[in-house]
Write a protein that binds this DNA or RNA. Structure first.
Lengths: 350, 350
DNA sequence: TTGTATGCGTTATCAT
DNA sequence: ATGATAACGCATACAA
């Protein structure tokens, strides 16, 4: 039924090794004429080498394992896409695991990936303590942490400047003359969330503006959480904030929905700046002014770091902190927001 | 460096086979006391069986290959998530390939998946002719086609009732008294697109309403294409349509953006019904009334069909056509659209 | 109840 | 330039 290498060798009248040599283009040369015969036999039998056997032999699978916290979060979906792109370009295929924000499932995926002998692991840690770290270290396989910084030495990481970006976004709000600024923050137990809140606070402090605890909401990422937080912040009869910094585009989309239902005008009544730069941010109502992450570079550097460590086990694990850039659209209240089409060309949609 | 089974056996003072027996719980029993020793040795050496070697031996990888047309399309992203979920529940891990709407890349992924000995392939065909079909058939591995019907017998498929759903959506528009109905359709060369257009046409014909060619636009899926199509349909000075059926939520989001820029009021000036039911549809402005696909069931039946064929090679390939359901929100102009929160509970967001 | 031995399909080393 | 052969790490049939 299944055709093996020896069948090809037999048909071509050569030894099995020769078949490999012609198929792999090495490590040894083979006479042009024999090569022809082998190729013909391969064709005739429709021979496909067994990748598993090959992997067992050469001790490489050309496979990368990717674990993301939550596939239904568009940010992680885009990050995953960028990583897959970079992996494909480098000849690798990726095994993906969706942790669904579940610590145990995250660990389960890391474990099966290791068991399946992936050549490297790309980990975007779920919130809370990351239980699978020791397991990864013990594995002696290269691995890289993305997006959510982990406080460990000797681990390669690809992060963005969450603090600086949040500060820049907040300063943009301040530049618009807004002073009563609220904040929809992410969960307390994830790094980017903490850093973004800190950046927001820093920019505010620097301008001498207070951020009372009553104006910040630590809520999960997700549209619904953003919606509820905004409902809570703006629904009451008390004096409304005139600006809102949101830790993620997804939450911001929820907040915009709340504004629509509450009759709060954006950007007139409240200016909004958020964070991430997912594709959808250019199509919300109004289009979101947001601190945009360099998805392409995140993907490239992520697999780049992995490949570097695979090539040289002793290489210093690199940690990159990439810049984010302000994409001005309409929620901040800028005079002449770029036309929609140019916002699109801004790398938002492929 | 790496610890093998024989190392464990040696430490435990047993033969390698015994190690397998205790780890795999069979096929042979082992004395409780020896079992203890083996487990202790496994623990002490931190032994992890090599999945590749295991797969080579048992001829199964517990891996499924998934090829999607375009990972940046939220619909496929959600479908992929649902499939991963079902696969995980069944103990399988998924290798994902993003074809980026590229025929060659799709084939390349199918090929490497087969080479890597996946236990089955989940294929969501890219548009145009599907070149990898013969290869899949020749492979003798089970495979399932999702979402985009393929005109072949003996292939398992999981589809939705595109035609019926589109007809229902269009009838809903008609029920609102709209008569000048336009259509943003998908690409001509993909099945769901054709079927949805046909359903829309059928409902219109049934009501005696004409659909002039000037009111239909065949454009790619994607927000930007939807935006441009709506700009085109509604930007001119001629009499505007009073309703719009859109082949996908993504395109509809783009159309809503166009309406916002053109000052066209939705649903007052134009009522909209679209198709897919992606999470974001509940958060657009206004929230989209859309024909919602049963993502969970699509995932379950997709891997279900695969497992069925794996269990019994001779089993008839099943083809399921799942129903879609109208999720009434605000773009259609219904009197009492359900409150936002309940739309959420409608299975839109996890 | 346990040890021995063979094979899975490949690659790579060693002879020829 | 080519043929034989030994691993790779594991699972299991068979012998003990």
């Amino acid at each position: 039924m299944v055709v093996r290498r020896r069948d090809v060798a037999e048909l071509a009248g050569v030894s099995p090794a020769v078949v490999s040599y012609v198929l792999n283009g090495g490590p040894r040369g083979v006479a042009p004429e024999t090569k022809e015969r082998v190729l013909a036999a391969v064709q005739q039998l429709n021979y496909r080498p067994n990748g598993i056997a090959r992997s067992l032999r050469i001790n490489r699978t050309m496979t990368l394992g990717l674990v993301i916290p939550d596939a239904s979060n568009p940010f992680f979906a885009e990050l995953a896409r960028a990583l897959e792109e970079a992996a494909f370009a480098a000849g690798y295929t990726v095994l993906v695991g969706n942790a669904t924000d579940n610590e145990e499932r995250q660990t389960a995926y890391v474990r099966t990936f290791l068991q399946r002998q992936v050549d490297g692991v790309l980990l975007v840690p779920a919130h809370g303590p990351v239980a699978c770290l020791p397991e990864l270290q013990a594995s002696k396989k290269p691995w890289v942490v993305l997006d959510r910084r982990v406080d460990l030495d000797d681990v390669a990481q690809v992060l963005v400047d969450n603090r600086g970006g949040a500060a820049e976004g907040t300063r943009h709000l301040l530049a618009h003359g807004r002073r009563r600024i609220a904040c929809v923050a992410g969960p307390r137990d994830v790094m980017p969330s903490q850093d973004r809140t800190a950046g927001c606070r820093a920019a505010l402090a620097e301008a001498g503006v207070r951020l009372p605890a009553s104006l910040v909401r630590h809520v999960p990422f997700g549209r619904r959480a953003g919606y509820l937080a905004a409902m809570d912040l703006f629904g009451a009869t008390r004096r409304r904030p005139d600006a809102l910094f949101v830790a993620s585009d997804e939450q911001a989309v929820g907040a915009l929905r709340a504004f629509a239902e509450l009759g709060v005008a954006c950007p007139d009544d409240v200016a909004v700046v958020s964070f991430d730069g997912i594709a959808d941010a250019a199509y919300s109502f109004p289009p979101l002014t947001t601190m945009t992450q360099p998805f392409g570079r995140l993907g490239q550097e992520g697999v780049g770091h992995l490949l570097a460590r695979m090539a040289d086990q002793a290489a210093e694990p690199e940690v990159s902190v990439l810049p984010v850039s302000l994409a001005v659209r309409e929620t901040c209240g800028c005079e002449n927001p770029p036309a929609h089409t140019s916002a699109d060309a801004n790398g938002q949609e492929r």
